[in-house]
Design a protein around this nucleic acid. Sequence first.
DNA 1: TCGTAAAGAGCAATACAATGCACCTTCAAG
DNA 2: CTTGAAGGTGCATTGTATTGCTCTTTACGA
Lengths: 70, 70
Amino acid sequence: MHLQEIAEHIKERRKALGISQEDLASLSDVSLRTIKAIESNKGNPTLQTLYDLANVLGMELKLVIKQLNA
Amino acid sequence: MHLQEIAEHIKERRKALGISQEDLASLSDVSLRTIKAIESNKGNPTLQTLYDLANVLGMELKLVIKQLNA
DNA sequence: TCGTAAAGAGCAATACAATGCACCTTCAAG
DNA sequence: CTTGAAGGTGCATTGTATTGCTCTTTACGA
């Protein structure tokens, strides 16, 4: 999963939950400015920031061994 | 997957591949100092750094919706 | 058409990740 | 015991993620 895809997943998931960037900001304690940057692919967020967002969005970060038959 | 677990996964995978931190550093273009910090849980790496390491280690970063029956 | 909500972006300040360097400890091979 | 490989850590520097503030644009409903 590339960096860009991760940003897209965040954005899509947020929309699927029907909340705004502003909502996500207050729920996650990640600043609105940072969320805007991430979702518009301007960012290279830290793991902590990504974790905070994923948590609010009911998502999970996984680091797994690549499968050959993927 | 918590931040600490991710660090541990990196470390375990590196050892399973039988390479040193120094090897990983030169293969990934992430500095040795940064790898040391991450593996000893002192770090909050950026997504790019994590991605570079995962790539060399044959691992993949995933952001998925949490399953209820996990 | 007007007003409002939502998202994108420029700018400056602050916090901290990434890096290089030096040094220490541990541990296994000789 | 000595040596060398590997990992961990303190410190200073550099780069950049994070943040707040402000402004613009877009889209939708009154």
